[in-house]
Every structure is written in C-alpha cells, then in structure tokens.
Design a protein around this nucleic acid. Structure first.
Length: 446
RNA sequence: UCGACAGUAGCUCAAUGGUGGAGCAUUCGGCUGUUAACCGAAGGGUUGUAGGUUCAAGUCCUACCUGUCGAGCCA
C-alpha cells in the first residue's frame, strides 16, 4: 500500500512503496530511461523511470513535464547503486497536478538582479530552501533558549511616536489625527518597561531603518531579538551573550547538519563557538589596531587622510573590525566604549565618565557586528540630561523616565540581528538571502 | 550620499573602431545509469536611453537611467 512521505524521511521507507507530492526540479533522460529530480520542500530525490517497466501513459506523462511542474510520484524507495546514504525512487506511477510554463530560473547561473526580481521563485532552489530552514532553526533555538532560561516573550509596538535612538533615520507614516507615526527601529525602550515588570523579557520582531546603506550587511527591514534583564550589569549581560550564542550555534549544528552541508559550510569554524569568548575593551582594541598599524581613514576634499595612531574616541569601521577579529576563531566581545560614540541610554562607567558600559559582539570570519548591547542608565538625573544633550523631545520620553522614577534598578540588554546571524551561520555572501523577501533602499518588490 | 565597475538573444557571457557569436533555456530528433548528463538540428537581436565624434560605433566622448561592488552608518 502506498504511503505519503516527505523526502527528508525517505530513509525509513527503503523497499516500500511511497508517494512524493512535490515538484520537478530537473530531469535527465537517456533513451529508455529518465531521471527526474523531485523536490518537496524538505529535500530532493532522484527518480528512476524505466520505459519497459511502466505503463506507456506514465512514460508519456514524464516526457511532457517541464521544470517546476507539480506532480505526485509513486514508486519504491531504493538505495542508490553507487552513492552511500543516497536514496532513489523507482517510479511506477505519476499524477500530474499542473504543467508549469517555461520556468525562468534554470539550474544554471543567473545574475543577482534577475534572481531578486524572481525571489518568489528563486526561493525554491536547494540553497535558498536550506537557508530558510536554517533561519527557522536559529529562531526556534533562540525561543527555546529564552523560554528555558525564564525569559518572558514581550511583544513591543511597531508604530511608535518617536525615535528610540535619535541617531538613525526612521520611516514615517500618517497616524489618523495624531500626526506622524514612525516604524520602530528597536523595541528596547519598551522592553525596559517589560523588564521592570517581569524581570527578564525578550522581544523578537521586525525593525526598520531608513538608512540608505547599500552593503552586504544591511537591509531596511530586519528582524531583531532583544532581551532585557532587571538587576543585570554589563558583565552579567556579557555572560548571557556567551551562553546564548553558544547554545544557538551548537543547536543549529546539531539540528541543521544536512542543510549546512548543502550550503557548503565549514562546520569546524562553528564548532569552535564555545565559551568563554574573548572580551576586550575598546581601549585594548585600539591598541590592537595600532600594533597592526590600521589607520583611521577620513575623507577630505582632496581624497583621503590616513590618521595614525588610531585616535581614541572614534568608532570602528569595517577594516578595523576585521583587524580586531582576525586573530580569533570565536565571536569577540568589545566592551566599554567611548560614551560619545554611543547611544544616550547607555550607563556611564562609574570609574570613568567618558566610558559607556556598552558591548558589541563581532562575529568571526569577517561577518561583523551581530550584537550590540549595554547596561542602561538607571539614574533619573543622568538620563534626563542625556536626553537633553541629544536634543531629543523630553515630553516623549516621560514614560521612559518613569522607569527611573518608580523603582529604578540596574538593568541591561542587547539586540541581535537575526539576518546577520543567519548570514554568519550559513556563510552567505550577502544578507539579502537571509530573509524570504529582503527590503533594501532600491528594492521593495516582490 | 560618495567612489569604482558594468548594461549585447529568455539566462550567463564573447566580439582589434570594419559582416553581432557561443553555451544553457525553448521546439524537434537520438541515446538503458544520468548527476548543471551528452550528441544532432531549428527558431531567437532597435547592443539600457538620448545626443555627439567618425567614411564606419556594441566598441570612443558627454549626460541620464538601472544594477553590482566598496565606503560611511548600523544589527
């Protein structure tokens, strides 16, 4: 009796007759033999159609198929005659559901623009489905880690009346009689309210940045996971980051092995991601830059100016991050930053008011910043003057200041960019492949 | 936003300033173990747009459009 099964479970059905409900990915023929490759979303399996062994109609039906035609194929599962651990389907019947029109995406090479214009079809290909399954596993691992460590899921609003951080540009929209609303660039300020209510919370959802950044690491709509913890200082924060990253990476290694294989990922690099991670201060990072003679490059009217030694107080660019990370095979935590380079809500170091208690986590292999976190300013006066210094509208922050009026406590948190995490774990060339439909400054379709 | 590079068949790419080609895809034919299968044949073009230089422009010049990569900013 035939049974419906999915391709990723096919090994359990050797010598049994099964029906695969899927699509034709590719087909090769050799006279009286055909080798259709079937995909069903969980994997790909090669069918074998022998002309002398199937009814004439089955042979004719297979001859008619175009790439991405949808079919239900029945056959007996066998081991591949040459390849260990690979299975085939000895076909004996087919039901055609739909003959596809000529499919634009062939198993050959295509350009980026062509593929992104057809993202809704491109995502059917083996590499893209593998990435999307790994993304699923990463998010599931994050949720499990948070749940098992006592964090409460705390959903923050996407419509907001003001900037969480005054620095970056926001998308705006009309909001009835209340004027402008802005799409959230971070759920952090709301998560802080949640932490003072529930102890440990996290948000996981889309965030928006109207930055005209055309790099392989930026999209305008990205997903962020932001935990926020009451009674955590910056060192507690870094301890959590270590536990968290180790868990997620090792969990994905365990559960998504076959997908990482499809992606050609060097697994040994990810196996290294075990705590402790290197922790270096910003000042130590600057020392590294100067030892390696990496200058700050500033653009001027007549070209570029190379400044040596790297001046204290400047933020790092891509070449600096690379130079800092290249000696390590684990994520690197850079902490205690110049306050001026960082956001208004970060707490100052009690030992040095020029230092903010922030931490950036740089992924290995040049994938750049994946996490940014900090201990938050919990003193009312300090925070209020910081808001004023940054020219932020004080009225809009009164509710936020309330958190320092009513039972203020030391608290910390961080934000993880989901797509950057996916890019790193899957070793992607570009972040646009880390999310089903990437939004960039020059693309909103499909 | 700035910088570099690119735009030729459905796709990926060739073409010294001098007759625009190939592979894949499509259609047809062949092949009993193929792996981006292979072999044979056919159809497929206003060379991104607008100007200019030249006897002659896909090729050189100018502007614009679109894209890619990099920088800044950030997760």
């Amino acid at each position: 009796m035939e049974q419906r099964v999915y391709i990723n479970k096919i090994a359990d059905f050797v010598d049994k007759e099964v029906t695969i409900q899927g699509w034709l990915y590719n087909i090769r023929s050799s006279g009286k033999l055909m080798f259709p490759e079937l995909r069903d979303g969980t994997g790909v399996i090669q069918g074998v159609v022998v002309k002398s062994a199937v009814p004439e109609k089955v042979w004719e039906d297979f001859s008619k198929l175009t790439q991405e035609s949808s079919v239900c194929v029945t056959g007996t599962v066998t081991k591949h005659p040459k390849k260990e651990g690979v299975y085939e389907l000895q076909v004996n019947n087919i039901e055609i559901i739909h003959i596809a029109e000529p499919y634009p995406i062939t198993p050959k090479e295509h350009g980026v623009e062509f593929l992104m214009d057809r993202r809704h079809l491109w995502m059917r290909s083996p590499k893209q489905t593998a990435i999307l399954r790994v993304r699923n596993e990463i998010i599931q691992a994050i949720r499990d880690f948070m749940y098992n460590n006592g964090f409460i899921l705390f959903d923050t609003p996407i419509f907001t009346p003001n900037a969480c951080e005054g620095t970056t540009t926001l998308f705006s929209t009309d909001y009835f009689d209340l004027g402008k609303a802005y799409l959230s660039q971070s759920g952090q300020l709301y998560a802080e309210a949640g932490a003072l209510a529930l102890g440990k919370v996290y948000t996981l959802g889309p965030t928006f940045r109207a930055e005209n950044s055309m790099t392989r690491r930026h999209i305008t709509e990205f997903w962020m996971m932001e935990p926020e913890m009451a009674y955590y200082d910056i060192d507690d924060d870094m301890n959590l980051i270590e536990d968290f990253l180790e868990y997620v990476v090792q969990r994905v290694l365990e559960k998504s092995k076959s997908d990482l294989e499809i992606l050609g990922r060097d697994i040994s690099k990810l196996q290294n991601v075990k705590k402790p991670f290197p922790r270096i201060t910003y000042a130590e990072a600057v020392d590294i830059l100067n030892k390696k003679d990496v200058p700050l490059i500033r653009k001027t009217e007549n070209g570029e100016e190379h400044i040596r030694p790297f001046p204290w107080g400047e933020d790092f660019g891509a070449p600096h991050e690379e130079a800092i990370v290249e000696d390590y095979d684990k994520p690197v935590m850079v902490h205690r930053w110049p306050a001026e380079a960082k956001s208004f809500y970060m707490k100052r170091d009690p030992n040095d008011p020029k230092i903010a208690l922030g931490v950036d986590v740089l992924a290995p292999e040049g994938f750049g910043e994946i996490i940014g976190g900090s201990q938050r300013e919990d003193d009312f006066e300090e925070l209020e003057s910081r808001i004023k210094e940054h020219n932020l509208p004080l009225e809009e922050f009164q509710w936020y200041l309330d958190l320092r009026r009513f039972g203020s406590v030391p608290h910390s948190g961080f934000g993880l960019g989901i797509e950057r995490m996916v890019s790193w774990i899957c070793n992607l060339e570009h972040i646009r492949e880390a999310i089903p439909f990437a939004r960039r400054p020059n693309r909103i379709r499909p």
